[in-house]
Each structure stands twice: as structure tokens, then as C-alpha cells.
Design a protein around this nucleic acid. Structure first.
Lengths: 118, 118
DNA sequence: GTCGGACATCGACAAGTGTCGATATCTACC
DNA sequence: GGTAGATATCGACACTTGTCGATGTCCGAC
């Protein structure tokens, strides 16, 4: 890492004005796009919505796996993608791993888009 | 087309509850994800923000092309993607083609995400 | 009609992505 | 310690995507 201060995608979104106010710099776009790309997959979008609407706001991998007709490694992979960009939090309790959404991350993303409506 | 009634991605978003309320169906996710995927590319995200923040809310391809270090066909391709999913409107006036954002489309997308924050 | 410029389409290529089965890791329990 | 189950990682594969140069199409000016 050449820079000591590196913003996560989520942090970048939090500090950006709504899209309609002023154009994003190439740098900003480069950091925000991965977030949108992460939820731009049908499986990951559903994973996010299932976790978000789950009781207690969290779900373990086994619950999520059951909701899809996909292999366990594939679900694990998609969860990793969502976790890596900062949209999902991970907590291991015993043998199970629980995921929960990072509300501010998704909210900031929503605010960025809402701004376009003017 | 087997079904006579086919919702566009934008129409699907408009009718969906916020993510946190109830899980998206595979069908809903499959129609919304392409919208998010479309803006999940740095170039397209910037294109959208440039058009959105442009004077009169519209921009011609030549303006957009100048903002990037990419070939004209590449810009044209990205604009087509954004247009195909219903995020950008297209109007040809003389030799020039003007693009403008469809505000409701982006707003609905924002609302969908904002719901997660609770 | 011909020419030049703006934009779209086409074909090709390298790079990225989603998926799987096999395997590794970790934890609880016997 | 050994075993079984939950999850992650690895390697491989087909498929998709971003990009380009070449070419096509359309419109206005001369």
C-alpha cells in the first residue's frame, strides 16, 4: 500500500455528495463502483435482502445456503464479496458464522442515488 | 417472450419494498440486479453523474467522450448499457445525441437501498 | 450529389466472474 | 485424540465483460 490513508468503499460513499450535485471524480467512482457491483448480482442482492429482513438482523450461512440452489462454496464466495466491500459484518459464534448488514453502508449508498431525483 | 407482461428493471424496482422489509424473490432480484450492475462500473457511474449534474440535465456524447481517456465506441457502449436498463434517456437532435437521466429510476433504486437503514 | 463529422455497430481479444468439486480449517462433542 | 459437521479456500472451467480498431449509418453543409 503506497498510501497510509486508504478509504474503504463505504467511507468513500459516506463523504460524497449526491450524484446530481457534481460529477464524481474518477477516483471516487473507482471506489464506489465496487460496492454497486457487489449488489449487482442477483444472488448477492437476495443474500443482502435475506440477511436484512431476517429476525434479529442476522443470519447464519446455513440458513442462507438453504435459500438457494447453489453449492456451499458458491454461497460462501458471494458472502465474502459482500463482506470485503463492507456491506456485511461477520461474526463467528461456535461452529456457526453469522452475517448482518452494515446499515450505514447501504443507507449511504441509497442517499447517493436518491440525490439524483433532485 | 413467453410472457406478455414483462416488467422493465426500473418498473420492478418501483414496485418493490425496501430490502429490509422482506426478502426479494429470485425473480425480483433477477430484474433489479442488472440495474445495479449497470452502475457498478466506474466509467458508467461517472457517466451517470456527469449527465445528472450537467446544465439542463442533459449531455451529448461528444461532451461525455471528452471527459474520459477512452475510445468513442467504448463510451457509446457504456451509454447503451445505461440506456438499455432504463437509467438514461436518449434523444437525437440533428447530428448530436443527447442523454439525460431518468430521475425516477435512480430515485427508486435509492429508495430500495435506503429502506435497509431502518 | 458529395463530403465530413457524430454516433452506433461489429468482430476480436484479454481480463474478470460465477460456479463447481475437492480439500483445508476450525469447533464441539464423544 | 478422533470424529462429525459448518464454513472457508483452492484450482479449474465456461461464460461474461471492457476495450479497441474498423466499419456502417445518419445528418448537415457546400
Amino acid at each position: 500500500m503506497s498510501k497510509s490513508l486508504t478509504l474503504t468503499p463505504v467511507e468513500t460513499v459516506a463523504c460524497c455528495s449526491p450524484l446530481a450535485q457534481e460529477p464524481l471524480s474518477a477516483d471516487q467512482a473507482g471506489r464506489i463502483a465496487p460496492l454497486l457491483k457487489a449488489i449487482g448480482d442477483p444472488v448477492r442482492l437476495r443474500l443482502l435482502s435475506i440477511v436484512a429482513s431476517h429476525a434479529d438482523g442476522e443470519a447464519c450461512v446455513c440458513d442462507l445456503h438453504d435459500a438457494f440452489d447453489l453449492s456451499q462454496p458458491t454461497i460462501s464466495h458471494h458472502l465474502k464479496v459482500l463482506h470485503d466491500v463492507g456491506l456485511l459484518d461477520r461474526e463467528k459464534r461456535g461452529v456457526w458464522v453469522y452475517y448482518r448488514v452494515v446499515p450505514s453502508a447501504v443507507a449511504d449508498l441509497g442517499a447517493l442515488l436518491t440525490g439524483v431525483a433532485g
